[in-house]
Structures are given as structure tokens and as C-alpha cells.
Design a protein around this nucleic acid. Structure first.
Length: 276
DNA sequence: TGCCAGGCATCTA
DNA sequence: TAGATGCATGGC
């Protein structure tokens, strides 16, 4: 019924929604005054909250979420992965166990490729709060308006014809030209999530690094968060410091497809426990 | 007021 | 080829 929002309860299975949304893997969410979390992925918007061990999902524009929407968000929040078993395996490694104890409520989101690429182009030499603020300005100035006052990340075709001066209002600094180069490559058909999905990790990384402003770290963030490559470990300063401190013999022996998930717990532990 | 930020491009030796 | 430096901006 129009104007009435129907909420859906989904088992959170030990998830910490707030930690998941604001741990530095996504810049598409914000906390509203009413305490709900509002976010976008592709051209979908969502309101989310947590009550105990359940997520409450609702449509920002009112009305119902379709079965297709629910399936999309289930996948987005990685709800069908058995995190209980995964975390039990991680607890088997002494050092990794400490990281899981610190941040085990985090789930690694499955974000759209393009949203992720734009977000991590903004992350270069930047702070999480400021990345979030620039990403919000990017969506609100150039993105498609969605129900509930939300805005999608702008389509590549929307950004491609713009000039750097057109992005001045974003206050993204030297990163603005990176957004335009990426948009022109995607809009021009030189690059796509589909094409990258067909490549090996190393080949996809190489293709991403052809974009101006994409180095090894940003490429690996896009592979992990935006293309579901769960073995990829983005090597930022915190991971390097944690490796020196916790894993001098190398990354813990995670099963195939899990090293990228482990790095999220290691990153959060390092950021919150090692000296600045 | 200065340092630093989920880095990268460019310059220099 | 490896190491050093500059880059825009704002939070702390």
C-alpha cells in the first residue's frame, strides 16, 4: 500500500550492523536522525536497523521491498555465508583470534563494482569521515535521485563528459580527475565489472591499475569489496603494521576464499589497537 | 599549528 | 629500479 513502509526482519547471525557499515569498507551509508541507517547500492536505496540478532530492512520510499530487492540485500550483506563456522576457523589461529574477538561482528559487504571503484578512488591518502562526506556530495550533486531523499552514485555516463572544474564542489582535491578517468573508461566500454569478473585476480588487478589513481591497494579493495574476490588482501598501512606485529611468518593459513575476510578483522584490530 | 589520512604519480639518483 | 617527494583537503 502506497505510503506505508513494510519492514522485513532478517536473521543477523551475530552481525554488528553499525560496525559493518562504518568500518571503512563502504562509503554509501549514513546514520539518520531517527537512528536508522540509510544507504544505497547501485540504484537501490535501503533503510536498515538492528534489533538484537535481527536486521530490520525497509524501503526508504515507503511500500514494500520486492522479493528481488530482498534477495539483492541478502547478498549485499553476505547473509547466506556461515560466518559462525568461518569465525570458528579464524579463532583457530592465535593472533587472528584476537582480531575476531575485537571485530567479529563485521561482515564483508558485496557492493556494486562501480560504487566501489568511485568510493576507493576517493580513499587515496584520505580519512574515512572525509571520504564518506565527499562520496555523499558526489551522489547528491550528480547521482540519480532515489525515493526517500537518497541518491545513487552517479552513472559513468553522467560523469564522463564533465571537466575537473565541474567537480570542484566535491572538494575531492586531486582525486577528482581520477573519477573522470574511470568514468570515461567505463562509459567508453574499455572497462566493466562483467569483463573483470571473467578475469583472474591478477589480470583484473592489472586492468584496474590502468585507471589513473588506481594502484595496488585501491585495485585490491575494488576486487574484494566490489567484485567478491574473497582471497584478495588490500595491503594498506594498518595491515602491514599488523602483519609485522601479529603474523611475522606471513598471513594466517586461511582456507581458500577467506583471506580477504580475515584482513577485515585484522585491519579493524590494528586501527583500534596499534599506536597512531 | 602541524601531522596525518584504508595511496598514487612523478621525479631523481 | 628503488627511494623520495608532492599532492588537496580537513579532522584531530
Amino acid at each position: 500500500m502506497a505510503g506505508i513502509t513494510k519492514s522485513y526482519k532478517v536473521a543477523a547471525d551475530g552481525m554488528d550492523l553499525e560496525a559493518t557499515l562504518f568500518c571503512g569498507q563502504s562509503f554509501a551509508w549514513q546514520r539518520q536522525e531517527d537512528g536508522l541507517f540509510a544507504g544505497v547500492a547501485g540504484t537501490r536505496g535501503l533503510l536498515a536497523a538492528q534489533q538484537g540478532d535481527e536486521l530490520i530492512l525497509s524501503n526508504p520510499g515507503g511500500g514494500t521491498l520486492s522479493d528481488e530487492d530482498l534477495a539483492f540485500w541478502r547478498n549485499y550483506f553476505d547473509l547466506d555465508r556461515d560466518y559462525g563456522a568461518l569465525l570458528d576457523r579464524f579463532r583457530g589461529d592465535g593472533a587472528l583470534a584476537a582480531c575476531v574477538a575485537h571485530a567479529g561482528g563485521i561482515r564483508v559487504l558485496r557492493q556494486p563494482f562501480w560504487d566501489t571503484l568511485l568510493s576507493f578512488l576517493l580513499s587515496q591518502n584520505n580519512h574515512i569521515p572525509r571520504i564518506t562526506a565527499i562520496a555523499k556530495r558526489l551522489r547528491e550533486e550528480f547521482g540519480e535521485a532515489l525515493p526517500g531523499g537518497l541518491h545513487a552514485f552517479p552513472a559513468p555516463e553522467r560523469l564522463a563528459p564533465l571537466a575537473v572544474e565541474d567537480l570542484a564542489g566535491l572538494q575531492a582535491g586531486y582525486r577528482a580527475k581520477y573519477l573522470l578517468d574511470a568514468a570515461r573508461r567505463v562509459a567508453g566500454g574499455q572497462l566493466s565489472g562483467q569483463a573483470l569478473a571473467a578475469l583472474s585476480d591478477s589480470a583484473a588487478r592489472e586492468m584496474l591499475m590502468a585507471i589513473s589513481g588506481v594502484g595496488p591497494k585501491v585495485a585490491d579493495c575494488v576486487l574484494l569489496y566490489g567484485l567478491g574476490r574473497r582471497d584478495v588482501v588490500p595491503m594498506d598501512v594498518w595491515i602491514k603494521r599488523a602483519m609485522d606485529r601479529l603474523f611475522p611468518g606471513g598471513m594466517p593459513s586461511c582456507a581458500a576464499g577467506e583471506a580477504g575476510l580475515a584482513q577485515q578483522y585484522i585491519f579493524c584490530w590494528a586501527r583500534d589497537n596499534l599506536p597512531k
